[in-house]
Amino acid sequence: MNCKIVELGLGAGGACGYGSLVDVKPLRARVGAVSPVLFKGGEGCGACYKVKCLDDSICSRRAVTVIITDECPGGYCSAGRTHFDLSGAAFGRMAVAGDNNELRSTDYWLSLLVEFEDGDGDVGSMHIREASSIEWVEMKHIWGATWCIVGGPLKGPFSVKLTTLSTARTLSARDVIPSNWSPKATYTSRLNFFT
């Protein structure tokens, strides 16, 4: 497969800056983030790898070619190890026919994007708490207003606590994410930091 990118877009699409090109040929969202040893400070952008799942119960024998568009978020990839974080489209391509949602879904990773904080809207830290717990777990800052947690399995409903960077004010949204949470969904708390 020819993985050469001939035109760069601006905006999203990972640290490599491919923007909306990740959704069109030749990528078609079959992209991945890699550990620092493969990302090489950005020199690994655009590299192609064939990845194959070895679990015959949920994976076909088909490998998927992915193009590198990003570095693993928040230091979850060990600096000296080879690690891939694949897009849902890449995972789905490796699945047994009809079972792509089984392979794409995970309850071990949750990423949140904070929008419309208003007032003291500079988020300095973010914590999450499962309904079955009394402990607030600190989330890892990925970039911008995006935070994530790896653990699990993660079970909602979730409460979210934000702390501002400039004034250390805290806001807690209780059970803002329901037990039947789903990827790419938006959940609104109606709480804001007002000046």
Rank of each mutant, 00 (worst) to 15 (best):
N2L: 06
C3V: 11
C3Y: 05
K4P: 13
L8R: 11
G9F: 06
G14V: 03
G17C: 13
G17K: 08
G19Q: 00
V24E: 13
L27E: 01
R30K: 13
R30P: 11
V31D: 09
V37H: 06
L38S: 05
L38Q: 05
E43R: 09
E43K: 13
C45Y: 13
G46Y: 11
G46Q: 05
C48A: 15
K50N: 14
V51K: 10
K52R: 02
L54M: 00
D55N: 11
D55C: 01
D56Y: 02
S57T: 10
S60V: 05
R61N: 12
T65H: 15
I67G: 15
I68F: 12
T69I: 15
P73S: 10
Y76K: 11
S78E: 05
S78P: 08
A79G: 13
G80V: 09
T82Y: 01
T82S: 07
H83G: 08
S87Y: 07
A90S: 02
F91Q: 13
A95Q: 00
A95V: 09
A97Y: 12
G98Q: 06
G98F: 07
N100K: 00
N101V: 07
N101S: 06
L103H: 03
L103T: 05
L103Q: 04
S105P: 10
W109L: 11
L110C: 07
L110P: 01
S111F: 06
S111W: 04
V114C: 01
F116V: 10
E117G: 08
D118C: 07
D122Q: 13
V123E: 15
V123W: 09
S125W: 01
R129H: 10
A131R: 09
S132W: 13
S132Q: 14
E135I: 08
E135R: 01
W136I: 05
V137L: 11
M139P: 02
K140C: 14
H141V: 07
I149H: 15
V150T: 06
G156Q: 12
G156I: 11
P157M: 15
F158S: 12
V160H: 02
V160I: 14
T164D: 10
S166Q: 09
S166F: 02
T167Y: 08
T170L: 03
D175C: 03
I177F: 01
P178Y: 07
P178A: 06
N180V: 14
N180D: 15
W181T: 12
S182Y: 11
K184V: 09
T186P: 02
